[in-house]
Design a protein around this nucleic acid. Structure first.
Length: 538
DNA sequence: ATAAGCACGC
DNA sequence: GACGTACGTGCTTATA
């Protein structure tokens, strides 16, 4: 017999406790339990403590599974799940089928360890000054993410199946063309075989570094340098694009449609990215293509619930640069945003010391690349690579940038200095990241830590901001008893499935709450669009 | 199974 | 002169 007590009896006994607003619930990865209980009609309520999220704020660069933190903080080796349900893979069973006495040991240990960890983490959160971030942001975000995952998104399966067949034809043709140009048949998807064909059999001159295993590099950067001179390279670029889109998205997404809901339910991981960002898995809905026309097609498959609904997409405009402007208090950058200028054009005008209306597309492109690189601590070498200009030219652009935006340069330097002094760097809401290599004598290792000291406050503060917005929006939708569901978060974008009758009201609520979730010294702009599918909503 | 190479997003 | 742009997820191939 799988279980001794039927779940209806368990539910009767536990539901009043689990739904009691005053009883503290302590768990590891509470979102998982919330989702599970939801399937049994139980809504977990009241104060929460999540040991996974606590450890995420205490040691953001580490992993946060219970077996690891139990080992580290309690010196205790937990029972391995594989000892109960079998090794990972096809033979692995489920908890329902497992030996009851083993499961009993496992769950009792789980409860015991979770409580012990909670008692350790409560003072530690206070000591590390992340208690408020924990209680006001990370914990309240849990039910928001639970609702988003449960809501899921609708996928047009037929559309993707049709597109897949069309892609198959394109891929077959490209394959044949490449075989003809190469004079051999080989596996185009094998970078090893491809490198040998291009650079040994066809004797195409190879410039640039080999990969770390000594292979010829065949990545996009390499192929694009060859594309003008060798037709085979262009065909390979197309082949790569089609096969990537087909295997990762078009063929994979329909397989993940849930049979009960008919929708795709991603899982948002709240304790992976050390900067505070969320991540998305099974499927990853944060990397759906948008750059190329062939890729954009895939977004047409993300559709509203039915004919009476639309997708609403709201995204922050240049949020990371606005955060840089605000943190640095750089007058010129703040001015540009206050005047509502296109930031890349404004940057170009300053860097090239010309009028705004004299900025050419090339200048804007260069300025955009600088703005982009700034947030990551990019060097003159790095910029010269992206822009494909000489190092001297890249250095001149950067020098001009630093002269025109001295506050930004000061911010970078002072963040590195702060990290040296304190051993960590923090975001606007006080999320900390420990940079233990900041004083390393090794140039490479220290350089990496310095780039993290620059990037983490920027990327992390943007993450803080959208998390607060999500909590406030979720609360407001509930308060107004609106049916609109928040479904996706893509770092600076939120997507909603909205009934037509609610669109105007929800658009207003969302844009206002996104703008006002955290005060900056520059205005925050939010773009909003609606459509039957995700592409049209942009 | 795991690593490598590659490519998608922000 | 080194090294050279942050954060993720997931596909296929190659190797063990």
């Amino acid at each position: 017999m799988p279980s001794l007590i039927h779940h209806s009896k368990l539910k009767k006994n536990f539901k009043p406790i689990l739904e009691d607003e005053h009883i503290l619930k302590i768990g590891e990865n509470v979102k998982y339990d919330m989702l599970l209980l939801q399937a049994y009609g139980v809504e977990l309520k009241g104060p929460m403590f999540d040991t996974m999220l606590a450890h995420y704020l205490i040691e953001p660069d580490q992993r946060h599974t219970m077996d690891i933190i139990a080992e580290n903080y309690l010196g205790y080796a937990t029972i391995h799940i594989e000892d109960i349900i079998g090794k990972k893979g096809k033979s692995q069973g489920t908890m329902r089928e497992a030996d009851v006495s083993k499961v009993t040991d496992y769950v009792v240990e789980d409860a015991d360890i979770t409580l012990q960890l909670k008692n350790i983490f409560v003072p530690l959160l206070k000591e590390r000054e992340v208690e408020k971030l924990f209680n006001d942001v990370e914990v309240p975000l849990v039910p928001v993410l639970t609702d988003m995952e449960f809501a899921g998104v609708k996928i047009d399966k037929q559309f993707l199946e049709d597109y897949s067949r069309q892609m198959e034809k394109e891929i077959m043709q490209l394959e044949n063309t490449v075989y003809e140009l190469a004079g051999v048949q080989f596996n185009l998807s094998s970078p090893k075989q491809l490198g040998e064909v291009l650079f040994e059999k066809l004797k195409i001159p190879y410039v640039g570094k080999k990969t770390k295993t000594g292979q010829y590099s065949t990545d996009e950067e390499t192929l694009s340098k060859l594309a003008n001179d060798f037709a085979i390279a262009k065909n390979l670029q197309d082949y790569r694009e089609w096969t990537k889109l087909k295997s990762t998205y078009v063929d994979a997404l329909p397989l993940l449609i849930n049979h009960k809901s008919g929708r795709v339910h991603t899982s948002f991981n709240q304790a992976i990215a050390a900067t505070g960002r969320l991540s998305s898995v099974d499927p990853n809905l944060q990397n759906i293509p948008i750059r190329t026309d062939r890729g954009k097609e895939i977004r047409k498959a993300f559709i509203a619930r039915d004919d009476e609904h639309v997708l609403l997409s709201c995204d922050y405009s240049q949020i990371e640069l606005r955060i840089i402007a605000s943190l640095s208090e750089d007058e010129n950058m703040i001015d540009a945003f206050r005047q509502g200028l296109d930031i890349h054009t404004a940057t170009a005008a300053r860097v090239y010391s010309i009028d705004l209306n004299m900025v050419t597309p090339d200048m804007r492109r260069n300025a955009k690349a600088v703005n982009f690189g700034i947030a990551y601590g990019q060097s003159a070498f790095g910029l010269s690579q992206t822009l494909r200009v000489s190092r001297a030219e890249a250095k001149e652009i950067i020098d001009n940038y630093q002269k025109q935006f001295p506050g930004v340069s000061r911010l970078m330097a002072s963040n590195i200095e702060f990290a040296r002094q304190h051993g960590y760097i923090k975001t606007i809401l006080g999320r900390k990241r420990y940079l233990r290599d900041i004083g390393s004598a090794n140039f490479t290792v220290r350089g990496q830590a310095e780039r993290l000291a620059i990037n983490t406050p920027i990327q992390g503060s943007a993450a803080d901001m959208i998390k607060v917005a999500m909590i406030n929006i979720h609360k407001e939708l509930k308060k107004r008893k609106l049916q609109t569901k928040m479904t996706l978060q893509v770092h600076d974008e939120l997507v909603f499935d909205t009934h037509l009758s609610e669109v105007d009201e929800v658009k207003e609520i969302v844009t206002e709450l996104m703008k006002n979730s955290m005060p900056l010294s520059v205005p925050i702009e939010v773009g909003a669009g609606t459509g039957k599918n995700w592409l049209d909503a942009h």
